[in-house]
Amino acid sequence: MHIPDGFLSPQTYLPAYALAAGGWAYATRELRRRVDETLLPRLAVLTALAFVLMTVMLPLPGGTSVHASGIGILAVVFGPWLTFAVVSLVLLLQALVLGAGGVTVLPVNALAMGLGGSVAACLGYRLLAPRWERAGLFAAGWLAAVVPAALVAVVLGLQPAIAHTSDGQPLFFPFGLSVTLPAVLIPHAILGLGEGLLTVLVVSFLRRR
């Protein structure tokens, strides 16, 4: 979701930063408690990997392809907190090194993709996997694509209501929920199928050994 800066109001991104900061503090504590001394290198290597993995192409019918997010895979294999940390770092580097992605969108994307997406993926996986392993993996990949999209669509769609001039003109993102939800959700529900398929294949390959 490459929304440039300038479409989110400070009333949105400042609280989002506060919320994300809490999440980062908690994630750091959780990870330190659970992971051994490989934590720092593992986080680093996975972040570099995610940076590149986001360019792994998700094949579409007809020879074209789009970027995969890999969040479903990360969430199922490494859990939501590590995924949250990795996604946040990737976004930070994209913003500061490449100048891409935007700093006001960063906390929203980090919370939506890193936390919302990975928690949804883990829940979906845990719910289905005991009975249907593959369905669980598929759900993880699909949810990891759709839930963040839905969250971002809601945040965007609320902008006209949050920030507008006295005569009702928007100041930031112009469209309401009735536009953002279908415009974002429908393509992602379809792309999610590919993400789900990739999650099934990758995680079952990884586990076969």
Partner: peptide, 20 residues
């Protein structure tokens, strides 16, 4: 695509241990 991703994950795991 999946095999490429698996290979990248393998490399990541190996490198993380080496760096540690």
């Amino acid at each position: 695509s999946a095999a490429a991703a698996v290979h990248l994950f393998d490399r990541a795991e190996h490198d993380a241990r080496e760096i540690a």
